[in-house]
Each structure stands twice: as structure tokens, then as C-alpha cells.
Design a protein around this nucleic acid. Structure first.
Length: 485
RNA sequence: GGCGCGUUCGUCUAGCGGCCUAGGACGCCGGCCUCUCACGUCGGUAACACGGGUUCGAUUCCCGUACGCGCCA
């Protein structure tokens, strides 16, 4: 089995396109077939090599590998022209010399009569003399397909039997006057020559499929199987687009989503394994994938659920790999160069280990864990009111600092024992020491367990911040801060 | 405007005539765990668009209506 993903390189890899690619990929892998790429760059003006690269990069990032070199439509124009000519030969297509103005007039007239416009087909039966006359005028013809009366039907793996009366169809254009093929011609020729067995693409092409079916029949080629998958909509139920915020795969990558999470999530937009599984590896999805599990109705993209799923992936990721993925986000936030990043790597791994349950995206790490790298410049207002009010707090913090200074080794277990002992000697609850300490050292009321936190931060930093906070509280000049999150 | 496609909790979905008092997940709300915040865990909230048929029985099949989306203009 051979399937393809056929993006137009007029933008970055879009979430909707990525989902189509995922379905094609899963289908190919499931059946041991080939997953191919075709770049639909017939619109030379709007296509660019940088866009092509962005799309390939997006697919690579998602982990969707293709099996043969991509086919570029821009390099195949002569083939389309030859195929169009072939249909003219066969009498299944014809040259049409109507000008844009003539067509527009027909359209206006139809509208005035209150009718739906369809091309009249008046160039269908031009005599050789008439054609010659037009040619002498310098008119450049388009090639139109001659739609015969009848009913066109095909089976779609998502929608079932679909049929349409050919009377609804225009004599649609195959080749424009400048020799550029239309979508219908190019797609049919390419899918045939690439040996595509299953066309899995967006719902928006369903209405166009009868035209393509007619083309297959006119060429005498076997039809592929079709599966038209529902579109992905934005929260306003309109097709997902720029105004819904991030729509390209690259944007999600730079926000700190993991490719596994994105693939998992978009695979579940419009497809279900049939049971209650949601968190699935690529292999599990390949195993479970089936066209019959694709739903007919369009799905709304809900980033809140993607966030949740990303959080699940982050917290279950291999720690070393997670640190590797998170490192660039720290570097970006703190302005590290490559060397500095490399130096920080072991420390970052510890930080990530403490924060991985508290974060949804890689980009959250340096924000939530800012205090692992710089002294807090303010203290959560609510925490100050709660934990810095007791007059004994400065003294407690200093005592704790003194005790911790003697801690050896500076590890969570030792730190905990030290703190609890001190609390007991002071006749207070451990919590009365723990909360002010966390606030003193991190500026925050929430976060990782205090003892693990201290151990990672290191003795020097902890002791210094405790003393500094004690000083601030004693002088009554505690700078307050809003939560950065 | 014509044609096509679609319609189960706010969102993603399970359901393919009786198993449905409609299941799971996200979100939201609450309990537990706990040094806090998370994680985890337990519980709660919330849906078959509407109207006709077919059938002993419809979320499920058929037909309309409404609404949404798409394609062509």
C-alpha cells in the first residue's frame, strides 16, 4: 500500500496538515506500506523552498519519516501537459478559447436569471476552422474536461457511498492557458504515477473527488481508495487559522510541546482506537490504527487538553532526555551561550527532575524554576502576609542557616533531620519553619519539597538567601512580587 | 445561491437496535495524600439538535427541519 501527504508549500506545516500526515503515516506503517511526500508547488509565485524546508522540518520534528524522495509538482509540468493533450486526443477534453470577460458575462447573465452558474460548454464542439480563427486572434486556450451526463459515485472509507449527479459538474479546467495544471489534473496524474493506493486527505476535498474519479475513468486508470478525514476547527468552529493563535507545528515546538504529545493529541482529533486509551505511543497507535475509526464530524482544537497531555509526557519522559530537550529553553531565557549551557547541563537535569510534575510545557521550566538560577527579587505578597509575620521569623531563619551551614553532606535526608530537630528545640511545628524558609529561598509559597529543593540549590545559596531574607524581614522592607506565572 | 458533508457532556470521544440509569478523557468543582504547589487518587458537574416515521424496542435505521462546515460560484 502506498499513501502520500501532499502539502502546498505556501506556509509552514499546519496543525491540520500535520494531522493528515499522521493518519497517512499510521496507515502506511500499520500495513507495511510506503509513506510518500508530494510537494504541490504548482503555484510558483506563492511557493518557496524555505516553506518546503519548513514543512519537511516539521514532519521530521514530529517523527514522521517518509520513504522516498519527495515529488515536486513544479518539475512535472511537461507531464501534465502531455496528459492533458492525451485526453484531448481521446476526445475526453477540449480546448476552450473563452476569455475571462466572456466567462464573466455568462456568469452575470446566469445570476440575473437567478440560476447557478456553470460553464456552458460552448467551446466543446468548435470546428477546426473556428479554432484556427481563435488561434489567429492570438487567443491561448485552456483545456477543459468534457463531463458527460450521468452519475458519479465512489466509496469513501469515512463517509461511505458518495454520489453526485454529473449535471452539478462544470466542464472543469485541466490546464490553464499558461500551461499550468489545475489541482485536479495534477493530483490524479501524480497519484496514479506514484502508485498511490489510498488517498487520505481533508474533508475539504470531498466535493472535488467526483471530478477526479471522472479523470481516472477517462484515463482508464484504476481508482485509489478514498478516505476523507474531517477538518480541524478553531474554538469558534471556523477552520483553524492564524487568528486562532498558534497553528503551525513549529510554533508548538517553540512553545515547548513535545513531538510525542503533539502527535498523540492530533491523532485523537477525529480518530479513536475504539477503546478508552488516550496516552499512546506511536507503535501503539500504528497497531490500533484503522480507517474505520475515523469520525465524520469535524473536531475543535482544544489547547487545554494538549497542555494536559504534554504534561503527562513531560512527567514520564526519561530525565536525561527531558533535560536535553529543556536545555535550549533555559538558554533562551537566561541568555546562555553554548558553552554555558553545556556547563549547566547537570544542574538543569536536577532542576528538571524537581519541576517535571509542576510544568506543562518545556518553556515553563525556566519560568517556574527561575529561583534555581537567580536570587528572588521579590516575595509572593500572600506568602509574606502568611509566613513572614511572626516576630520570631528572622531569628528562626538565621538559626536554620547556622545549622544548615554545618550540615554534611548537604542532602535531603540530612537537611530534613536538621530542620526538624531545630523546630523541636524551638518548640514549634516543622511547618512553621518550612514555609518561611521556602518563601525566603524561592520567593514563592509553592514548589518542590523543601529538602530536595535545598539539596539541589546547594548549601551556599540556601544559607545566603536565608540570611538575606531574615535581614529583610527584620527591617520590615520585604519587596513583594506578583507571581510570574 | 447551487451542491456536498456533518450534528452524543463546554471540548475530544465510546456507542455500530435491547448490555444505556449513555461509558472514558480534558476542563471545572470538592475530598484524600501532604511542609506548600504540583503529581497521584476518590467523587461531583455536564450530552444523544428538533420533528416525523420504521420496529415489540431507537443515541443507533429512514425522511424532513434547523444549525454548522466545506466545495463551486
Amino acid at each position: 500500500m502506498r499513501v502520500r501527504f501532499a502539502p502546498s508549500p505556501t506556509g509552514y506545516l499546519h496543525i491540520g496538515g500535520a494531522r493528515t500526515a499522521v493518519f497517512n503515516y499510521l496507515f502506511a506503517r500499520k500495513h507495511g506500506g510506503k509513506f510518500l511526500l508530494r510537494i504541490e508547488d504548482t503555484d510558483l509565485a506563492r511557493s518557496g523552498q524555505d516553506m518546503v524546508q519548513a514543512i519537511l522540518d516539521g514532519l521530521t520534528w514530529l517523527g514522521l519519516s517518509w520513504d522516498e524522495p519527495p515529488v515536486y509538482q513544479s518539475s512535472r509540468f511537461p507531464i501534465y501537459r502531455a496528459r492533458a493533450a492525451e485526453l484531448v486526443e481521446k476526445g475526453r477534453a477540449y480546448r476552450c478559447y473563452c476569455t475571462r470577460e466572456e466567462l464573466e458575462r455568462e456568469r452575470q447573465e446566469a445570476r440575473q436569471r437567478g440560476e447557478g452558474y456553470r460553464y456552458s460548454g460552448r467551446c466543446r464542439h468548435l470546428t477546426a476552422e473556428q479554432r484556427a480563427a481563435y488561434e489567429r486572434e492570438g487567443r491561448k486556450p485552456v483545456i477543459r474536461f468534457a463531463v458527460e451526463p450521468g452519475v458519479t459515485r465512489f466509496y469513501d472509507h469515512v463517509h461511505g457511498e458518495v454520489e453526485i449527479n454529473n449535471a452539478q459538474l462544470d466542464d472543469f479546467v485541466l490546464l490553464r492557458s499558461d500551461g499550468v495544471p489545475t489541482y485536479h489534473l495534477a493530483v490524479v496524474v501524480d497519484d496514479h504515477e506514484m502508485g498511490i493506493t489510498h488517498v487520505i486527505r481533508g474533508d475539504d476535498h470531498l466535493s472535488n473527488t467526483p471530478k477526479q474519479v471522472l479523470l481516472y475513468e477517462a484515463f482508464g486508470w484504476p481508482k485509489p481508495e478514498f478516505a476523507h478525514v474531517p477538518l480541524i476547527l478553531g474554538p469558534d468552529r471556523k477552520r483553524l487559522s492564524k487568528r486562532h493563535g498558534a497553528t503551525s507545528v513549529g510554533e508548538y515546538a517553540s512553545k515547548g510541546y513535545l513531538p510525542e504529545a503533539v502527535v498523540n493529541f492530533i491523532a485523537l482529533l477525529g480518530w479513536s482506537p475504539g477503546d478508552d486509551r488516550e496516552i499512546m505511543t506511536l507503535d501503539e497507535m500504528i497497531q490500533a490504527f484503522d480507517l474505520s475509526g475515523i469520525s465524520k464530524a469535524s473536531a475543535i482544537f482544544d489547547e487545554a487538553k494538549l497542555e494536559w497531555m504534554n504534561g503527562v509526557y513531560i512527567s514520564s519522559y526519561d530525565l536525561a532526555k527531558l533535560a536535553e530537550k529543556a536545555l535550549p529553553f533555559f538558554a533562551r531565557e537566561f541568555g546562555w551561550d553554548e558553552e554555558e549551557a553545556k556547563r549547566q547541563r547537570p544542574y538543569v537535569e536536577k532542576v528538571v527532575g524537581l519541576l517535571k510534575f509542576r510544568v506543562k510545557k518545556l518553556g515553563d521550566f525556566p519560568v517556574v524554576g527561575r529561583y534555581f538560577f537567580t536570587d528572588p527579587d521579590g516575595f509572593e505578597a500572600e506568602g509574606v502576609r502568611k509566613h513572614f509575620v511572626d516576630a520570631d521569623v528572622p531569628q528562626w531563619l538565621e538559626l536554620l542557616a547556622a545549622e544548615l551551614e554545618r550540615c554534611e553532606p548537604f542532602e535531603a535526608g540530612v537537611i530534613e533531620r536538621t530542620l526538624r530537630d531545630l523546630a523541636q528545640r524551638l518548640g514549634i511545628k516543622a511547618a512553621q519553619l518550612i514555609h518561611p524558609s521556602r518563601l525566603a529561598v524561592t520567593g514563592r509559597t509553592g514548589g518542590p519539597g523543601l529538602f530536595e529543593l535545598f539539596a539541589v540549590l546547594g548549601k551556599g545559596v540556601v544559607v545566603r538567601r536565608l540570611r538575606r531574607a531574615a535581614e529583610l524581614v527584620r527591617s520590615g522592607a520585604v519587596p513583594e512580587a506578583e507571581l510570574a506565572q
